[in-house]
């Protein structure tokens, strides 16, 4: 079952890669409509990724715009050897790290407004909310590098080789970061697993 599902995912991904490569080619020729298409594809993906990496909502808009402006300005330098998605995420990742370096403020507690009182609803919902609270808090305790790997792997479903390219590090470093991130998350969730699974 997994094999069939992953085969379908791979086919869809290849189709997306081809479509995005064609868009980039048009963008390199100054086609704003193609850029708008690319923007609409990447806005939600990058927003999510940048929020996950930076944990600072006030940075997301700025870094996202800067990232896509680089795509617009340097699209003619995209050599087509890799995937468009890898190239764009790499730009976003490095811009996010640069933005974080310029900041001294602690990250916001992004999940404060999502937290509910333990007695706010049915027992089942309370259990799920508690798990979610613990998980989100645990993700917030990870470093930006670890959060990037977690988000790229679990949410964006990017393979570890492409993550290594995005983060400009060896493949084993990606696996190691994921190992530590998972261990941290599972440790924090240790008391919640029965409700969660």
């Amino acid at each position: 079952m997994v094999g069939v599902a992953s085969g379908r995912i791979a086919t869809v991904a290849r189709g997306d890669d081809d479509k995005e490569a064609r868009l980039i080619d048009k963008v390199a020729r100054g086609d704003l409509r193609a850029f708008e298409d690319l923007y609409r594809i990447y806005h939600p993906r990058l927003s999510r990724f940048l929020l996950s990496v930076t944990r600072r909502p006030q940075l997301v808009d700025e870094v996202l715009s800067d990232t896509l402006l680089v795509v617009w300005r340097r699209s003619d330098g995209f050599e087509g050897r890799g995937k468009v998605s890898t190239w764009i995420f790499a730009i976003a990742y490095h811009k996010a790290l640069n933005a974080l370096r310029r900041l001294d403020e602690p990250p916001e507690d992004l999940d404060a407004d999502r937290r509910e009182s333990p007695d706010a609803g049915p027992e089942q919902q309370v259990g799920q909310n508690q798990v979610r609270q613990v998980l989100l808090k645990a993700i917030g305790e990870l470093s930006a590098d670890h959060r990037a790997v977690v988000d790229l792997a679990y949410f964006h479903e990017i393979n570890y080789r492409d993550i290594a390219e995005i983060m400009d590090c060896p493949v084993d470093t990606v696996k190691t970061r994921m190992f530590h991130a998972r261990r941290h998350l599972k440790t924090k969730l240790a008391g919640q697993l029965a409700d969660w699974l």
Binding site: E36, Y39, R40, H43, P44, S47, R48, L51, D61, L64, S65, L68, L69, V131, R132, L135, I139, V150, D151, Y154, F155, R182, L185, W196
Partner: peptide, 19 residues
Amino acid sequence: LRATIADLRMDVEQDWAKL
């Protein structure tokens, strides 16, 4: 983990207008 982590909504239209 994968299912729980994958959840966020963003406002594309507003930000596209800005860019």
